[in-house]
Design a protein around this nucleic acid. Sequence first.
DNA 1: GCTAATCTGTACTTCTTAGTCAAGATTACC
DNA 2: GGTAATCTTGACTAAGAAGTACAGATTAGC
Lengths: 158, 158
Amino acid sequence: MKLSANEEYGLRCLVRLGYEGEGGSLTIPEISHAEGVSPALAAKILRVLRKAGFVKAARGKEGGYALARPPEAIVIGEVMEVLGGRLFESSFCDTHSGQAAICTRSVDCSVRSLWRAVQVAVDQVLSKATLRDLLQNEEEMNSWVRAISDRSGLRLLQ
Amino acid sequence: MKLSANEEYGLRCLVRLGYEGEGGSLTIPEISHAEGVSPALAAKILRVLRKAGFVKAARGKEGGYALARPPEAIVIGEVMEVLGGRLFESSFCDTHSGQAAICTRSVDCSVRSLWRAVQVAVDQVLSKATLRDLLQNEEEMNSWVRAISDRSGLRLLQ
DNA sequence: GCTAATCTGTACTTCTTAGTCAAGATTACC
DNA sequence: GGTAATCTTGACTAAGAAGTACAGATTAGC
């Protein structure tokens, strides 16, 4: 259970674009330099974000990338899913075709229940966060984490 | 953010051994058949679990694998860490050396805060679960999920 | 129209993870 | 001691993810 490079870099590119504010845009070389990723890789990941509708691209001179929606309309959970897929894709137990609520083998079921619980816990955090939240400065970021912490009962701050 | 094959298969092998109860043991062919994994792969993963102290092996005729501790002493979070590492290993931002609480680039910091929040949410689930929990039958499994749900405020049941 | 800056797409290489194989070491049982 | 069942180890292959390269298409500005 690791973050993929796609997720790490992709989210950073989005945040970087977000910093440019309303209508601001950046070129691939600018983004790649700011985030310390190679231009080729940044281009590859930005293409994924474009196809998913999070950013838009302008070609030609004076072109570049910009957010396709306001930051508060970009839910991090959706971004993460596009960049890295779902945690639990039911790959193992699909002899039982994923539809059945109850597996015949209880081993499968208890393990799947666990994965589901983890998936839900992750979603609770990621579906509450928007790009807007990530654009706030340090203090505001902390207060956001604290808010989720309070709402959910999780102790997210150490 | 995906489950690795190691995590999926490794946990299943553990659960399978747990079903054998106190002192019960299974051979690699038995485990591999029960879980639908190739013997060679099961052997590879069981080796990891043995080195980490979760299971013990007996060689020779009548040999096999057994749990090295009682199921309630096997915390799933620890198992998962051995099998798949941590979610967030600070790979990107280690120019800032991981020690500093505050990155100089706020992009780094907001993204890292998010990863930390996700990591903590996952840990809240996995560090509460032991192998004993996974060995219960369907109803008990559900009540365990419900208990965590209540305690943590997460809605883990849909 | 020409040029330079920019994204687009595909193909390629490299690295890590997943999965296989075979020879060796150990043990219970006769 | 011999034999068969079992784990152990390391090397090997296959598949997927990460990262690179380059030729092509598009556009602003002159």
